[in-house]
């Protein structure tokens, strides 16, 4: 279900946050795979996602965030809710 558009926008966020355009995201990408992706950057990513997609990540969801796949699912799910 995750569409290309979400991937493209998420990639752009990662490129901007780390200022590196060679980061290639897959659903399995986690903090281990990207240099400099620490807990601080994680929050920055979440904030950028919230602002880009107009969503608000819940505390419970924050605790369970680990991989890019998690982020994609979160964005897709909240977009569904928004469209309801």
């Amino acid at each position: 279900m995750p569409d290309e558009n979400i991937y493209a926008q998420l990639s752009e966020i990662f490129h901007d946050v780390f200022l590196r355009d060679d980061i290639v995201l897959t659903p399995e990408t986690t903090a281990q795979d990207v240099e400099g992706w620490d807990s601080f950057k994680m929050i920055e990513i979440v904030m950028a996602v919230e602002s880009r997609f107009g969503i608000k990540v819940k505390s419970k969801e924050l605790d369970q965030l680990e991989s890019v796949g998690d982020l994609i699912r979160l964005i897709a799910a909240s977009r569904l809710t928004l469209n309801d």
Binding site: I13, D16, V17, L19, E44, M47, A48, S51
Partner: peptide, 11 residues
């Protein structure tokens, strides 16, 4: 925005 300024700061 925050991300842009933060990146500018890094650079």
């Amino acid at each position: 925005d925050f991300t842009q300024l933060s990146a500018l700061d890094q650079v």
